[in-house]
Amino acid sequence: MLPEIGLNHYLIISAILFSLGLFGVMTRKNAVVVLMGVELILNAANINLLAFGKYNGSMQGIMFSLFVIVLAAAEAAVALAIIINIYNTFKTVDLSEVDTMKE
């Protein structure tokens, strides 16, 4: 029988989600996909917060994750704007082409 879902399960899910997100951020060339990776990382963190909140019995985790969601929305909006500008500047969203930071 399946064991009762406990804290560890949440954390494992969260870790997998985080790793996927990080992988996406680090390996994808398309900026939009990188952004999606960032979203995954954020949601991994959300899961962590909610899980700890549930097993700790306090409301702080829920409140915090609500903020993160709002922030994520805002971040997405800003990030998309940046990407659009990157596109406008470099005529591409391929991050390997965008290396002007080295100068």
């Binding site: 951020v25 680090m26 390996t27 990188v34 991050l95 390997s96 965008v98 290396d99 002007t100 930071m101 080295k102 100068e103």
Partner: peptide, 9 residues
Amino acid sequence: QTGHVQTYV
């Protein structure tokens, strides 16, 4: 210092 965000990450 490559200038690629991903390297920095």
